[in-house]
Design a protein around this nucleic acid. Structure first.
Lengths: 195, 195, 195, 195
DNA sequence: AATGAATGAGGCTTCATTCAT
DNA sequence: GATGAATGAAGCCTCATTCAT
């Protein structure tokens, strides 16, 4: 049922998706939907929570593998993270839909923001290992920039045809790597200082 | 009245915004709204069209100035473009709302996509001057990546407090400059080739 | 302005006709319409009253001519009456519209009824001259049948193409003459007695 | 629910009847009305279609009986037809309402017209049996005149009190019989020829 | 527990009427 | 007096939610 809801929310958007259509897609009745969820918003929040959990879990997995390999190999971590998110999208086709809704309904925007923030927060300690001289506040910003860029690039890629999408994912890797190198190679170069 | 519509669409999203509320914000009556726009969708489209026009105009201005200065100074062009878009946002506070709606309502997503694509298309010839060896298809992708990244970073920054936002804008400049340098310095390094 | 109202009411019906359209047709403004008529209903009633007056006047004219000629020639009176009503319709093209509305809006049905009743009442004394033995109550009914039949036949004819319409008018004359002959020739044959 | 709709349309007319009132009359809610009919017009059309069907069915029944009896007895057929339509009206009290609306709303006028035309068309072959010498085009007109006269007389009678109504029905029979006799007795006397 | 018809609040839209210019 | 933009009540319709079966 979550699956059906995810798909319908994805296709129609939160407001346009009707409970009846979701029930039909799930091959149940509206009544049954309301037996599990008190209202439409709760249904969406469940879909959204599921997406958050999956994404967090994915990130933890990638992170764990990478830490085992040593932080020096951060370029690989970056590439694998991007690939992982990209695969997630390709795998659970509906993910993008939820993402879309999460970011695109004003009501739930804060949540979408929250996910990226959570990941950024989780990323911060890694950045500290990589660039010890970076101040905490700066680390937060760099982490946010990485996460936001990646998520937007993938969201963009998802709307393109497969071949182009793959290239965009490649460019995303290149761009973020180039950006991170600034700090790894010359930690004193925090851009915002000069801004 | 467009102003009020822009604001309300911004705060509530297309579906949740009611014509009554928009009329109230504009300090008129529903009837008056319908004297200028045949229906709610048309009202939104007017708001959106205005935003598209402003954005295009802004971009053309920045471009014209930069071309006068010579393409060699592409770093300044990049910085000024980002500043210009950022200032646009800060100036017309409502812009972000429209952007939000344009990109985030499923129904209007295509239009939001279109604006970025338009700018990317406009950017392509400049890239050609800068990196003559880049193939057309690659140019398109690089241009898209630049535009999408910038727009998403600014959209992100807008949701942060002023001080952080300024830093994020700075990081955005740094990131895009670093990314572009790859091609300017070593045109053969198209990332997607290796992907 | 009455003219415009008549035309628009004719084409659209009472409910669908908007004051704005009527004003436009009259080449004035809504405000001006409301300077002469307190509301839409009053406007329609004026149109209707005008039609009633014209019709009554017409009938009086035909009647006066016929009486001058003598009641014995009732067949000519019948033919001329029908022709007169038919010409009225053809002349003021809008008449049918008002008629239509008068009969067809429930609210105003009573008035439409009233017109025919008025004419029937006016006809009664003539019938008395023609068929002295007919009881008052019967006279009323015969008069009503004549008037109603004629008005409905003409209303029907009006919707047909010109050539057919003319034939229908002819049939109407024939039918009513045949009907009246029953009473003129054999006054004891009142149909309802046997019903 | 059709019943309630029929009644309300009858009393108020198509435009003035509100869906809310119809729902109230049917002792349901607006929502329920829209579960069966996509919109108000469809609701009316259903009411109308039901009336058309009933009327057609009735006419076919009367016709079948009469044909079994032989065409020579056309006077009985005429009387029975009129009685049947009159009884239909008295039986389903609402019928007149639909009729009223069907004929009286400009939008649906064509349909009302159509029903009478259908019956007239159905009547034509009978006329042929009765008056073989009548030309096709003339037959059409005579049939139309019969049907239109009858329907208008009954519509008129329905608005009168019961006692008078009965008498009017009787007069209607008389009038149409007298009219038809012209052709049966002297088929060459087509009125329109002389018109 | 499952169903899906019934409910009615609330949104979009129209248009008779008013009133400032 | 003329105008026509402004007003807002009221109608149609949708859909989240409930509840009898």
């Amino acid at each position: 049922m979550l699956e059906a809801a995810t798909a319908v929310f994805a296709e129609q958007g939160y407001d346009s998706a009707t409970v009846e259509v979701i029930a039909a897609r799930a091959e149940t009745s509206v009544g049954s939907v309301y037996q599990f969820f008190p209202n439409k918003k709760a249904l969406f929040e469940a879909v959204w929570a599921q997406y958050l959990d999956e994404t967090r879990a994915l990130f933890e997995t990638v992170l764990a593998q990478s830490i085992a390999r040593g932080i020096a190999d951060w370029r690989t971590l970056l590439d694998e993270s991007i690939d992982a998110f990209w695969d997630l999208d390709r795998t659970s086709k509906a993910f993008r839909a939820v993402w879309l809704n999460g970011q695109h309904s004003v009501e739930f925007l804060a949540d979408g923001y929250a996910l990226n923030q959570q990941i950024a927060t989780r990323l911060s300690p890694l950045l500290r290992l990589l660039v010890p001289s970076l101040k905490v506040s700066q680390r937060k910003i760099v982490a946010s920039v990485l996460v936001e860029s990646m998520s937007s690039m993938l969201f963009f890629a998802v709307r393109c045809e497969a071949k182009i999408a793959r290239k965009i994912v490649g460019e995303c890797k290149l761009m973020l790597r180039r950006y991170l190198e600034v700090y790894v190679v010359d930690p004193g170069d925090f851009a915002a200082d000069r801004a």
